[in-house]
């Protein structure tokens, strides 16, 4: 018996790998926009976000057998995307920070200095606070879904959001941490 058999019930013949990949792709497709938004919020780079979501898709495929039967794909996949973003940050050691396009810079997007400051403050948040801030205030998820994607309790998610908000307020007010 294989993982796929285990997920879909007791059958004797396993669908072809292509068919399984098709089904997986169809399930994943509606979540990609949200995944890209999460990765962008976490990494603040279009190139790295695209990479991270692509890697998360491959990781999700490899670990599809680990998903519990009947559970919602969304928090499971968003959790994988979040973990991937964490690894991207760690793996940047020898990598050039590549510009999204030639001449790209912080103000090339036409953002005000206030938005640049906010983006910088988000980037400096500790990982879990940043994750919860992005899930809550960028993906606009309710706290139960924030908690599911962040793999913590609802109370913990609220506490992290509160601390993250306070961090952002302090940073934007010019206080040094």
């Amino acid at each position: 018996m294989t993982s796929l058999e285990g997920r879909s019930g007791a059958v004797d013949v396993v669908p072809s790998r292509d068919a399984e990949a098709d089904a997986f792709e169809a399930e994943l497709r509606p979540l990609l926009q949200e995944a890209v938004r999460l990765a962008t919020g976490m990494l603040l780079s279009a190139v790295e976000a695209e990479d991270a979501v692509q890697d998360a898709c491959v990781r999700a495929w490899r670990r599809r057998a680990n998903r519990r039967q009947g559970t919602d794909l969304r928090p499971w996949f968003l959790g994988i995307v979040a973990n991937q973003c964490r690894e991207v940050r760690r793996g940047r050691w020898w990598r050039v920070v590549r510009s999204d396009k030639p001449g790209d810079s912080s103000d090339a997007h036409g953002d005000t200095s206030a938005l640049i400051d906010l983006r910088d403050a988000i980037a400096r948040l500790p990982y879990r606070r940043r994750l919860v801030i992005v899930l809550r205030y960028y993906l606009d998820l309710p706290f139960d879904e924030v908690a599911a994607a962040a793999d913590c309790s609802i109370d913990a998610a609220k506490a992290l959001a509160q601390r993250g908000t306070a961090d952002l307020q302090r940073a934007l007010a010019g206080e040094q941490r």
Binding site: R29, Q33, G41, V47, Q54, H109, L115, I116, R119, L168
Partner: peptide, 27 residues
């Protein structure tokens, strides 16, 4: 906060077609 976070991150989003690219490359 919600409005500002949207504004700050939106400008960093990848361009149109990213979902399709992601799926094609992952596949």
């Amino acid at each position: 906060l919600n409005r500002l976070v949207h504004q700050a991150i939106d400008s960093r989003l990848p361009g149109i077609g990213v979902e399709q690219r992601v799926l094609e490359h992952a596949r």
